[in-house]
Nucleic acid binder design. Sequence first.
DNA 1: TATTGTTATTTGGTCGTACCATAACAGCGC
DNA 2: GCGCTGTTATGGTACGACCAAATAACAATA
Lengths: 256, 256
Amino acid sequence: MKSTIQFAPVTMGRASEEVALQIEAAILDGKIEPGDRLPSERELQLHFNTSRGVIREALQALKQKSLIEIKKGAKGGAYVREVEVSTAGESLALFIKRQPLDPQHLIEFRESLDRTITLLAISRGAEEEKIELLAKAKILETMLRQSDPDMVVLAELDRELNIMLARMTHNPIFEWIMQALQLGFSSSDVTLYQGEQYRKETGENWKNTAQAIADNEPLRALSHISYHYAMLLKLLDAVESTTDGNQKGLTGKRKD
Amino acid sequence: MKSTIQFAPVTMGRASEEVALQIEAAILDGKIEPGDRLPSERELQLHFNTSRGVIREALQALKQKSLIEIKKGAKGGAYVREVEVSTAGESLALFIKRQPLDPQHLIEFRESLDRTITLLAISRGAEEEKIELLAKAKILETMLRQSDPDMVVLAELDRELNIMLARMTHNPIFEWIMQALQLGFSSSDVTLYQGEQYRKETGENWKNTAQAIADNEPLRALSHISYHYAMLLKLLDAVESTTDGNQKGLTGKRKD
DNA sequence: TATTGTTATTTGGTCGTACCATAACAGCGC
DNA sequence: GCGCTGTTATGGTACGACCAAATAACAATA
């Protein structure tokens, strides 16, 4: 549609980066909007007066940043993506995966986050949201009572509960942080569920916490949260003392 | 050093993604460590039994994720990068640029974070750290009293204070989050300092808060923090009412 | 010996062309 | 109208060549 978009020809440095920067700037400035399709690689190749490889590398970079989405075939090409919460979370998740964290630090952070979120959820969350949260918590608890629950479904449900709670703050930043955390730790959290006692108490705690939230009783909710994390810490100590510490706990890497 | 690293040849789907995934996995599993250099593009081309373009696109993706760093010339190549905090911050910055956040949400998040961090800093921070924090806070306050302070230096000092406080929790997660936030919002924070009243009160508040921390008086510290953010909100309201709301406040984009 | 200038080699960066794979579309025949 | 088939636009892959930069090896010189 718009041939008015000006691309300066490129000569210096890493050409692909220049191209990527120019396109990124165009997107950030809103000159190209989400849903728009930018010219085909062969056209861009002409616009920028460069080779197709350069264009491809630039597009690859933008795709990595989740700025664009690339489709094959006719009418394919690079489409500007919509902004999503999860988008930003991925890199944080990657970061978390690489940096082995002390589980205690993680727990401490999560507890503080949970407390804040819970308080906000109580004061801001809609009635229906609280009811839905409670319902889901009850489902989780029921599932956890079973002798041989499906770990994957379980982890997913736990994840959903956390995110739902974060969403109830009606503050996207908390939702974003929570999503990132879930993304980063989802794989390791599963292992925890294997402890039977942990399962049982976790289920109860979720239910109790959700109940307290539904009843608008912040102190009771916080109390349950504290209990939950205290238990987690205790469990962690037990695990660490048995395995003699050559592992990194929650975020540790497991051998294949 | 280790030629034992096995790369499976690639045939299906988007080859470059496959390559990227395999290398990423190798890095994440610790099979290749930070500082290590992976084979040259031409060698990888053979390992993966693919074209050089594919390899280049894969490397480009990993570079974008800040997993590797690419150098030219002899002894050049792709080197596995050290993990850095700023890495995670960049995507947050991008996220914020595209999705202007409601300043109130931002303030809310920062306040909750500050409160948690402050409490932890009081209980965990070493004496010297507290003294240093107080010293820096006093410097900031002094600078802010001047009629024509250097905004850039000021913002930098403010940033340092925040990060130092976060570091005093002795929990790297808080430090990371704070760094990411500083990275993401640094540009917009500067504008705030232009309000004279804000400057003055902010300086005093930092000094008071640091003093309270040094004195191990959590409640007093929290009180100052609350006051600070309350003032920020008030100021924000004023700004928004005057500009008639066509801007996004803290995170809004400014015209060139 | 130490410093400096030169050459060679390695390695990423770019270019160009050809070809393949796929997704949408346009006809065509039924 | 339905379904098949070819057409076409477009990304994905493959070679092959050359350029540019960084380093190393070596020679020349003070």
